[in-house]
């Protein structure tokens, strides 16, 4: 195989990995703080895509411009879901909370289908489909602006969130609640408020990722579930459940691993790569490659 083609595929994998990282960061944040496995996570991503579609088609707004608004909206929505459905179950066994998030997932898929229909749709932003062409290894590598922007913004946001966890009061409160909720309360931290914000921000990050990829992917009501849910879980487990930096790095690793897998085994086998990594990690590194919580 030609070197330039290999480079092209690896770079695409890396770009995809950046988006994975952002999605996984939200998931790992929610797990880290609340010890909840959020099966509705991918639906927040799907919702972000559709909100970007509405903003584009109804108001002519570019997804990259409305992404912060979508983030804010879905933060509030996620927090509301947390408050109404999950908070009352926090004292009950974890399986209850898991079932509740599965319920939220089903509800959201149904609502999205009801409002926007089952067909594939995309944000038609022609310039975003143009490519940046780079001469490399005697050939040309083409990367679409849509994917480049999604990667750059996703990584930047994830990095900002990582910084905020260590340097803002709310972020420190989240880390404290993640590491010892009992002691956090003894220090005057309102852990139920932290939970509310955490779930909101986690959902918001997924929606933000959805908005960022809306010009690059066709969306349908089960898009998130089909293309991101399993991968996000693999990344979170690989990077150690609840470890934020782990999710960031894990996202990039899985993006590239999928690309290599696709290259060696054919594109149809790409999803197998995530699954194989998942099984291998669960068998040999059940606690992931990093240790610890929101470190």
């Amino acid at each position: 195989m030609e070197l330039d083609l290999i480079a092209q595929i690896l770079l695409l994998g890396l770009l995809q990995g950046g988006v994975y990282a952002l999605v996984a960061c939200g998931l790992t944040l929610i797990y880290g703080v609340m010890k909840i496995v959020n099966f509705a996570h991918a639906e927040f991503l799907t919702l972000g895509m559709y909100l970007a579609l509405v903003a584009f088609e109804q108001f002519g707004l570019n997804p990259y411009v409305v992404a912060p608004v979508i983030f804010g909206l879905v933060c509030v929505l996620g927090a509301a879901f947390q408050h109404i459905t999950i908070r009352p179950a926090l004292k009950h066994p974890q399986i209850n909370q898991m079932l509740i998030t599965i319920g939220i997932s089903t509800l959201l898929v149904g609502l999205i289908q009801l409002v926007w229909g089952p067909n594939n749709q995309v944000v038609r932003l022609p310039w975003a489909r143009n490519t940046l062409d780079i001469e490399m290894f005697g050939g040309e590598i083409s990367l679409s602006y849509a994917r480049l922007i999604a990667f750059g913004v996703a990584i930047a946001i994830a990095a900002v969130a990582w910084w905020a966890l260590r340097h803002t009061r709310m972020g420190m409160g989240m880390r404290a609640a993640s590491q010892n909720p009992f002691a956090a309360q003894l220090m005057g931290i309102d852990v139920s408020r932290i939970n509310l914000v955490t779930f909101g921000v986690g959902a918001g990050l997924a929606a933000l990722a959805g908005a960022l990829i809306s010009p690059a992917f066709f969306m349908n009501p089960t898009f998130g579930k089909e293309y991101f849910l399993l991968t996000a879980f693999v990344i979170v487990v690989l990077g150690t459940m609840g470890n934020f930096a782990g999710a960031l790095i894990g996202g990039l690793v899985i993006g590239i691993a999928e690309a290599i897998g696709g290259l060696l085994l054919g594109p149809a086998m790409r999803p197998m790569v995530s699954l194989s990594v998942f099984v291998i990690v669960l068998l040999f590194l059940p606690r992931g490659i990093f240790k610890g919580r929101l470190t």
Binding site: A176, N180, F182, G292, T295
Partner: peptide, 13 residues
């Protein structure tokens, strides 16, 4: 303010 039994530090801070 309580300093709890068993210390209960934030272990990874």
């Amino acid at each position: 303010i309580q300093c709890p039994e068993g210390r209960r530090l934030f272990p990874e801070m």
